[in-house]
Simulated assay, not measured.
Amino acid sequence: MPPPNKSGRGPMLLALILTPLILSTGCAPEAISGTDTSRTICRELRRDLPTYSRSDTPETLASGARFVTSFNAICQ
């Protein structure tokens, strides 16, 4: 199995783990957007936002889209 690229599983896994954790606190993303914790989480996730190239496969494109969706749910 080749190592994951910039839009690989590591950042996506982090987003999938953090999303339910953050949302399970009963706070909407807008309500927590100003906290130090949420700013830190979003800053770290922003570093891993996917970049795209012509060599992306349907799988890497789908993974990147899922990451962006999770990022937007947490940080917007």
Rank of each mutant, 00 (worst) to 15 (best):
S24T: 04
L23F: 10
S38H: 04
L21S: 07
G26F: 11
C42A: 04
R47E: 07
L23S: 10
A31Y: 09
C27L: 14
T37P: 00
C42E: 08
D56H: 15
S38Y: 04
L49K: 15
L49N: 09
S55L: 14
P50D: 12
T37H: 04
T40C: 00
C27R: 14
Y52E: 13
I41A: 05
R54D: 11
C42M: 01
S55K: 15
I22C: 02
D36Y: 03
I41R: 05
E30W: 13
L45V: 03
T35Y: 02
T35L: 06
A31L: 14
R47M: 01
L21F: 10
P20S: 04
R39N: 08
T25H: 01
I32T: 14
E30T: 15
C27F: 10
R47K: 09
L21T: 09
S55A: 15
T51Q: 15
Y52M: 08
I22L: 14
I32P: 01
T57A: 02
G34D: 09
I41D: 05
S53M: 01
R39H: 06
D48S: 14
S24V: 01
I22H: 02
G26N: 07
S53D: 09
L45N: 00
R47H: 02
S38R: 03
L49C: 07
R54S: 15
D36P: 00
C42L: 07
T35S: 13
D56Q: 04
L23G: 03
L45I: 03
E30K: 15
L21C: 03
L23E: 12
L21R: 10
L49Y: 12
T35V: 07
S24W: 01
T35D: 02
D56W: 05
S24A: 10
E44C: 01
A31W: 06
G34T: 11
A31C: 15
I41V: 15
S38N: 06
